[in-house]
């Protein structure tokens, strides 16, 4: 008995297909679709959309000592833009971004080497390079702090062996930001490697074989085949890399102890945001700083999308 209505519905669905319109509102399918989307929609509304509006509101207010916010217009933004620590944090963040991008050429190089025909152990290499990315960043930070340690760290031993001076890598303001940046590169290379290996897999083998028959050496093949055909993937990876490194927080938080003299020279925008918002109770300026960061991320992403026309080849 129940077969009839549902066949009718199926026929109706079949007839609807060519038309672009949605089924009648209130139909069983419509209601089901909304029920499917509702849990996520409510979650997003509560934990994403509402907070976003709220932060925007916070950025124009001052938090009272006993709760309640007062509207203070753009004062927080003015304060943020006038604060030298903000500019320093911004500078540090851009340094992290530039250093972080170094993971890409390294990953491309490794991916190209792994692409060698008949190479054994590809899966093993990939697995090993990926381990730092999977590892808890806090643990990674602690291990590298120990390696960087000025008195007993292994890195100083290596440098001394080469005749260089010992250094306090993470507390020396002139090296700390690069020390942290190096760890960033180390821990993300495997991630980009996997992305590039997937990208290279999509390049037809025939191209390489044809080039080889024409006498193109490995370097030539890399620059004329791999690199151009991988450029959409490189573009995607560089956007991801930039967005992530502009939001660096974990490694800095763990590697820089509270009394580290190089804190100002290493703290990122998100580190500063965390300090203002949750340590110093300066929620208003913190909210303004968060919007500033978002604007910077959006602007740099836009620049990347503009520039892509010059170097990305879409087959």
């Amino acid at each position: 008995m129940s077969v009839f209505p549902s066949t009718a519905a199926a026929k109706a669905a079949g007839r609807r297909k060519p038309a672009a319109g949605a089924p009648a509102p209130g139909s069983r399918d419509q209601r089901a679709a909304y029920l499917f989307v509702a849990p996520l929609g409510i979650g997003f509304a509560v934990f994403y959309f509402w907070p976003l509006l709220q932060t925007f509101f916070y950025s124009f207010t001052e938090f009272g000592a006993f709760g309640g916010n007062t509207w203070i217009g753009t004062d927080n933004y003015v304060r943020v833009l006038k604060d030298v620590t903000v500019w320093q944090a911004l500078g540090n963040t851009l340094i992290y971004c530039v250093i972080g991008l170094l993971a890409l050429p390294i990953a491309i190089g490794v991916a190209a080497l792994l692409n060698r025909r008949g190479l054994r152990g590809v899966a093993v290499y990939r697995a090993l390079y990926f381990v730092p990315f999977v590892t808890l960043p806090v643990a990674v930070g602690l291990v590298w702090n120990w390696l960087y340690n000025g008195d007993y760290g292994l890195i100083n031993e290596v440098f001394e062996w080469f005749g260089a001076d010992r250094r306090y890598w993470v507390s020396d303001p002139s090296t700390a930001v690069y020390a942290i940046g190096t760890v960033m590169v180390w821990s993300t290379t495997g991630y980009y490697l996997v992305i590039f290996m997937a990208g290279i897999k999509g390049i037809p083998r025939d191209y390489y074989e044809a080039a080889e028959l024409d006498g193109a050496g490995p370097l030539r093949r890399f620059f004329t085949i791999t690199l151009p055909l991988l450029s959409p993937t490189i573009f995607f990876a560089s956007v991801i890399c930039m967005i992530n490194s502009l939001q660096t927080f974990d490694l800095i938080y763990i590697m820089m102890a509270e009394k580290n003299p190089a804190i100002g020279d290493t703290q990122s925008v998100v580190s500063l945001f965390y300090k203002w918002a949750f340590v110093e109770n300066a929620q208003g300026p913190a909210a303004a700083l968060a919007f500033l960061l978002m604007l910077i991320i959006a602007a740099l992403t836009l620049v990347q999308f503009r520039l892509q026309k010059r170097w990305v080849h879409y087959a």
Binding site: P23, A33, W50, Y58, I243, V269, I297
Partner: peptide, 27 residues
């Protein structure tokens, strides 16, 4: 599934991807 507002909703949901977490954690 087809339903009214599907594309708009999907675009709205995707926009969450672009919001840095620092813009959300205070609220």
């Amino acid at each position: 599934m087809r339903f009214r507002g599907r594309n708009v909703l999907f675009a709205l949901f995707l926009s969450v991807l672009m919001v840095p977490s620092s813009l959300l954690v205070l609220p």
